[in-house]
Design a protein around this nucleic acid. Structure first.
Lengths: 223, 223
DNA sequence: GTGCCAATTGTACTTTGGTACAAGGGTAAT
DNA sequence: ATTACCCTTGTACCAAAGTACAATTGGCAC
């Protein structure tokens, strides 16, 4: 009897996902959470879940921070990110941070079911694989940002988690606590991150990394 | 013979603005620049211009940094911000940072002319004054951010400039250089900013302030 | 096995960042 | 003119950030 956690702050969404889960698994035990704290608590008590459906936006968590912390504390539990958006960059980043799948809320129920089965079987799922395979060159303008993206991709998984937490303005001490490592280690990671990204302060790294997420809307934001 | 500087990296835009300037002034001397460095150079040589039309997005400057530096170095020259966007928050921030006007590129030529005359006469111009007078409550959700915006509004002009430069990831030393003040002074401002914004590190201030600009697109970015 | 690399941690050190306190000059309002 | 506020700067001190070097562990590949 597989244990599946559904974490989303919207009851309606949880209901819809629950339906899909019931179609995808045989007599699943469905655990619902409306906030990140509940998820952490649940995972602490049951140790490992067979699958975690995680919404990106929940009370207490705005972006990838929840994913980062869960992946760090409970790496054995496969996480599928649920999101209202399906921006390729978000998808790539979620997968880079250790998610086993990325399911936009607009996905047809049948495809959601298939995706859940796929992930449960050890695979990874992302929307319309083809479009993502080629990152869509987009020759105009933002060459500099693409360079930066390339550099971000040279970061190790743990370093990306650190960068993610950096982006929330946390101190080294707080990051160490969240990832359950020594502050020294955080410093080592930060130092390495700064070198790889070719910047000379955490603030710059945050600003640069922040732009990557913004770029999705750059066409709207010109000017 | 009034000296008017038009700073925009797009030749077509410069042309259109030049037409408007010629309609608004009597035999203006129009100086064109495609990048911020040229503007600074020009201002250094002529001292004060009668009007500066400044595009927000130019090579070397992405946001308000150019405005901030120009206002700091050459406060006597009135600046009108030209932008492809007309988000009320951008408008408010530009004016808060010392711009005498904010003209969206979509503005009809006749209105641009009127706006330029208005500013040259010592007034300030913003698009559809009415809509901006009331900041559009927007009761849903983002109460926390509104709180933060309120706090940003308690910052003094100079402190806003510092915050703006903080947002580019600069070191205190660099900010001191840009604003031509001592590093000690920058520290004093930063310290005050952190208190007013109720955060405990520059990085957090940058993250928070960054969200204000993002919020314009929050409806697209849910998830 | 050997080698490579991610991850971890420690020590020790330098540089930024940030606070606290004090103080002088400028401007605007009462 | 007195108050108030902003901007400025200095000194001094403490905390956080970042670097450099060295070492251990574990996984993975050849």
């Amino acid at each position: 009897m597989p244990q599946i956690i559904i974490a989303d702050d919207h009851p309606m969404v949880r209901g819809a996902l629950a339906l899909a889960v019931e179609s995808a698994f045989d007599q699943p035990e469905i655990l619902e959470c409306a906030h990140l704290a509940g998820v952490m608590q649940l995972l602490e008590s049951i140790g490992v879940a067979d699958l975690l459906l995680l919404d990106l936006r929940m009370p207490g968590v705005d972006g990838f921070e929840g994913l980062v912390r869960i992946r760090s504390q409970f790496p054995a539990t496969p996480v599928v990110v649920i999101s209202a958006l399906e921006d390729p960059r978000l998808v790539r980043e979620a997968l880079a941070l250790g998610a086993m799948g990325f399911i936009p809320k607009s996905t047809p129920r049948a495809e959601i079911v298939a995706a859940l089965v796929l992930v449960a079987a050890g695979g990874t799922y992302r929307p319309d694989d083809l479009a993502l395979a080629e990152p869509a060159p987009d020759p105009k303008g933002r060459a500099a940002d693409d360079d930066f993206l390339q550099r971000v991709l040279t970061l190790t998984p743990q370093q990306r988690r650190v960068l993610q937490l950096l982006g929330t303005g946390k101190l080294n001490k707080e990051i160490a606590y969240d990832l359950d490592i020594a502050e020294t280690t955080v410093k080592a990671h930060v130092s390495s991150i700064l070198h790889k990204l070719r910047v000379y302060s955490r603030t710059q790294a945050v600003v640069m990394a922040g732009r990557l997420h913004l770029d999705s809307f750059a066409d709207v934001a010109e000017g």
